[in-house]
C-alpha cells in the first residue's frame, strides 16, 4: 500500500487530480457548516458584483442569493449525484455483464441486445424522458443518469467473465457442486470487477456533466441548488453579470478535470505495479 502511494505520488497528473478533488470534497463537506442557511434563500441586494461586499465574496445573483453559498452547496450535489450514479451504473453493469457472460446462449444474446438498445438511444435523451415521466427528485436523477451509463461496465464485465469462467478455480467450483449463481457472484464477479473499476472516473465525470446539463435545462430538482441551475439562472443576465454563469462553470471544469486526472493517476500507478510483477 505504501509502495502504491509512492508510485502514485510520482505521477504529476494523479497528484493534481487528488488536490483538485480533495478541495472540492472539502467544499462539499463543509458547505452545511460554513453556510448553514438554505443557499436558495435571499440574503442580500441582487446582482452584487464579486469582491464588492466582504459578506458576499462572489457576489449575489438576480434574486439576491449568495453565489459562494450556492457554489459550495452545488459541489455537494454534483459530487453526490456523480458518485451515486457511477455506483449504480457499475453495479448494474457488473451484474448484467456477469449474468450474460456466465450464462451464454440465448440469455446472453438477449441481455446483450438490451445493452445494444441502451447504447443506440442517446443517454441524455433517455435521462430527459425518464426525469420528465418519473419526476425530478435526486434519487430519480441518479437513476436517470445511470440508465445511460451502465452499458460500458456491462460489456467490459461480460468480456472479463468470458475469460475468467474458463479458469481452474471456476471449474473446481463446478466440480464441488456449487450453485451456478453462487459461482457467478462469488467466484467470477469479484475477479471481473477490477478492470471495470477503471471506468469509475470516466463515469463519475460523465454523470457530473449529465446532471449539470439536466439542471441547466431546468429538469433538475428545483429545491436543490446545482451548478447547472446556477449557470442557467445566470444566463438570463449573461451580458450584464457574466460571472454568475462563469463561476459555477469553472467549478464544473475543476471537478471533471480533477476526477479524470485522479483516475488517470490511479490507473497508471496500478499499471506500473502490474509491469513490475
Amino acid at each position: 500500500m505504501r509502495e502504491f502511494a509512492a508510485r502514485f505520488i510520482r505521477s504529476p497528473e494523479g497528484v493534481a487530480g487528488l488536490v483538485l478533488t480533495t478541495c472540492l470534497l472539502a467544499m462539499a463537506l463543509s458547505a452545511p457548516y460554513l453556510f448553514p442557511r438554505d443557499p436558495l434563500s435571499i440574503v442580500g441586494r441582487p446582482l452584487l458584483a464579486p469582491f464588492a461586499d466582504p459578506a458576499f465574496p462572489l457576489g449575489t445573483d438576480r434574486l439576491g442569493r449568495d453565489v459562494l453559498a450556492g457554489l459550495m452547496h452545488g459541489a455537494r450535489t454534483s459530487l453526490l449525484v456523480g458518485i451515486s450514479a457511477a455506483v449504480v451504473a457499475i453495479l448494474a453493469g457488473a451484474i448484467v455483464g456477469t449474468l450474460a457472460g456466465f450464462s451464454s446462449g440465448w440469455f446472453d444474446e438477449a441481455l446483450m441486445r438490451v445493452v445494444d438498445a441502451f447504447q443506440i438511444v442517446p443517454g441524455f435523451l433517455l435521462a430527459l424522458a425518464f426525469v420528465s415521466v418519473m419526476g425530478a427528485s435526486l434519487p430519480l436523477i441518479v437513476l436517470a443518469i445511470a440508465l445511460g451509463a451502465w452499458t460500458g461496465p456491462a460489456r467490459l464485465a461480460r468480456a472479463e467473465v468470458l475469460s475468467i469462467r474458463e479458469r481452474d478455480y471456476v471449474a473446481a467450483a463446478w466440480v464441488i457442486g456449487m450453485h451456478p449463481l453462487e459461482i457467478a457472484f462469488k467466484e467470477v464477479l469479484p475477479n471481473a470487477l477490477p478492470p471495470v473499476l477503471a471506468l469509475v472516473s470516466v463515469i463519475v465525470a460523465g454523470a457530473v456533466l449529465t446532471e449539470a446539463a439536466l439542471s441547466f435545462l431546468g429538469l433538475g430538482d428545483p429545491n436543490i441548488v446545482t451548478w447547472g441551475s446556477m449557470i442557467a439562472e445566470g444566463r438570463n443576465v449573461l451580458r450584464t453579470a457574466p460571472f454568475l454563469s462563469i463561476v459555477p462553470g469553472l467549478g464544473l471544469v475543476a471537478m471533471v478535470l480533477g476526477v479524470y486526472l485522479l483516475g488517470e493517476g490511479l490507473v497508471e500507478a496500478l499499471a506500473r505495479r502490474r509491469i513490475r510483477q
Binding site: L209, I231, L252, V253, Y260
Partner: peptide, 8 residues
C-alpha cells in the same frame, strides 16, 4: 478541453 461542459 475534455473537462469543459459543452453548454457552458
Amino acid at each position: 478541453l475534455y473537462a469543459v461542459p459543452s453548454f457552458w
